[in-house]
């Protein structure tokens, strides 16, 4: 009951917000968090390729940072297949797109 006296309670309990307005606000807040994909240079791609090949050949776990417009996503596991013709790779039975990779670390914590 004393919520009115705590934090932002006074204003949360007294405001008049249309649900449609609220929804648009939440969407626009989300858009503010949108980011563009990181562009990697040749050297960085080489590193990633090397780590992925190592993971594939030596069955070593790898951690790949993937692009997502709003969230931080990672693929962690062992590379099962690399399909460079279709630009994709498989980790634990699931396909991912190679062009969405933004960085890689091997199990040992090797930098990208």
């Amino acid at each position: 009951m004393s919520k009115k006296l705590q934090g932002n309670g006074l204003w949360e309990s007294s405001r008049m917000m249309l649900p449609e307005h609220k929804l648009e606000l939440i969407n626009s807040a989300k858009e503010l968090k949108r980011r563009a994909p990181v562009e990697l240079d040749e050297h960085e791609w080489e590193q990633i390729e090397r780590l992925m090949t190592e993971s594939y050949q030596l069955r070593q776990p790898i951690e790949l940072r993937m692009y997502h417009p709003y969230e931080e996503t990672k693929v962690i596991g062992t590379v099962d297949r690399i399909d460079s013709y279709r630009g994709r790779f498989m980790v634990d039975g699931e396909w991912f797109e190679i062009k969405q990779i933004e960085g890689a670390e091997s199990e040992g914590g090797d930098a990208e």
Partner: peptide, 8 residues
């Protein structure tokens, strides 16, 4: 009470 952008 703070001005809270994420309140909604």
């Amino acid at each position: 009470s703070p001005v809270t952008p994420g309140t909604h």
